[in-house]
């Protein structure tokens, strides 16, 4: 049987509502506690990719770090409607550096 993973988006309502149009599951959160519970819960519920807005991610660094070493789910930081904090890009740069040895981006 092919294992099907789902995709989730976590963030404030204004930023992520449009993802619904793509058929992605949308979870709106307001504060850090709610965000943490949501991410931990969906991580256990067969989601392969979790997009999370940088604003929310900056509130829950411990939770994000927790999934760094796990293959599934991939937690990916995205900018929100208020613009970017650059932490998402920074993480990608770090990962690239780890993978190839130098920053090629």
């Amino acid at each position: 049987m092919i294992c099907m993973f789902k995709i989730a988006v976590v963030g404030d309502k204004d930023s992520i509502l449009a993802f619904k149009a793509l058929g992605v599951d949308v979870f709106t959160v307001c504060d850090s506690e709610e965000a943490r519970r949501t991410v931990d819960t969906i991580a256990r519920n067969n989601y392969g990719i979790i997009f999370i807005t940088e604003q929310i991610a900056s509130l829950i660094p411990d939770t994000i770090e927790r999934y760094d070493n796990e293959i599934i789910p991939a937690v990916i930081l995205i900018p929100s409607n208020q613009g970017t904090l650059n932490i998402g890009m920074k993480r990608i740069n770090e990962n690239v550096e780890k993978a190839v040895g130098s920053n090629i981006l």
């Binding site: 506690e33 519970r37 949501t38 931990d40 819960t41 256990r44 519920n45």
Partner: peptide, 8 residues
């Protein structure tokens, strides 16, 4: 009770 996951 503070950090537990949702029952969903």
């Amino acid at each position: 009770s503070k950090g537990g996951i949702l029952d969903a």
